[in-house]
Design a binder for these strands. Structure first.
Lengths: 182, 182
DNA sequence: TGGTGAGTAGACCGAATGGTCTATCTACGA
DNA sequence: TCGTAGATAGACCATTCGGTCTACTCACCA
């Protein structure tokens, strides 16, 4: 049920309720009883996929081993794979943020909190690395992530994750911790 | 007339025709005679603002002087100002790209060409700098631009342009051309 | 003076929107 | 066996969507 809604939502936040219901094989009434309306559904979908994507970051780092440096760069390798997937249509959260005109929509809060969690995830690894400015560097990494997803959405042929990874390496500094440049 | 439409379009690509007409004080018929419909209007708005924004890049570089390095970094200083503007609501083209579900919409082509022109603008300066990989570096700079605009749209309080500028400096390499690191 | 082109105002259309409604079906527990 | 909770199907509602239409106004020019 949730899965079908997500699938439908990947076609954009502006789809019709009817299309959602048909795709999920769900009665109209059920939707309104469970989520209170379309906005509630959207919010819940965002919350759910935010949890999944956060787990994706964690899994990408876990798969990259124990070295924090490898773990952070592994995130960009993972992003590269995500972008290559044929279903990829850009960052869901950025699209929602731009499409949800109402600034009071609860979805905005969900997205904000999600980004903070990812930021903290990155910052933790940077502290592990003894990076001198972990918070600032996490900001920069997140900027690279956003840029990668944005470019990946517009130019499907190019491979932005590799370029972003190079820049991430520079943020992380010299591979040998004792001689970090900045 | 075009100005009023643009203003209204900053509220999203999904606004109603009626709202557009009212904001521009234009009769319904005029719109359909001039642009053939909503899609034509959107395309024309994209085309127009793409030209304006391209001029914005050029002006930002011109204002930064003659040194290609300064000119490229000036782009990020300019982006920082753009983001700070209270009307800023994210990159118009990214929003359109994500919102225009129909892949055959002529707006996609307008956006693609606009990005290519900006890319070429950046690449030209990189060649001026004797950068070893001007095309690749331009890709990376564009990624930083997209990331900056994306982060600026979501987190209004943070100031992503400064972090992006630092990364841009690394792309450009050592300030002294003869001793470039990579 | 009369005609023409371009604009405006706004009624109107079918389709689709988000949301509420009733009626029906079904599974489960007392 | 009956009652209830929760699901379904789908009619229905007002509103809005993008788009077409007619009727009218106004400036310009021969």
């Amino acid at each position: 049920m949730e899965a079908a809604k997500e699938l439908t939502y990947k076609q954009g936040v502006g789809v019709g309720v009817d299309a959602l219901l048909k795709a999920a094989n769900v009665a109209r009434r059920s939707l309104y009883e469970h989520f209170g309306g379309k906005d509630g559904l959207i919010t819940e979908v965002l919350r759910l996929s935010a949890a999944e994507d956060e787990a994706g970051y964690q899994e990408a780092m876990r798969a990259a081993g124990d070295d924090p440096r490898r773990r952070l760069l592994g995130v960009f390798d993972w992003l590269g794979e995500v972008i290559e997937e044929p279903e990829f249509r850009g960052c869901r959260y950025l699209a929602a943020e731009l499409a949800l005109a109402d600034p009071d929509h609860p979805g905005h809060d969900v997205i904000r909190r999600y980004r903070e969690r990812v930021h903290d995830l990155l910052e933790r690894e940077l502290r592990e690395l003894d990076h001198p400015q972990p918070a600032h560097a996490a900001d920069q990494l997140l900027l690279l992530v956003d840029g990668t997803l944005a470019v990946g959405a517009i130019r499907r042929d190019t491979h932005p994750a590799a370029g972003a990874r190079q820049l991430a390496e520079q943020i992380l500094g010299d591979p040998r911790p004792s001689t970090r440049r900045s």
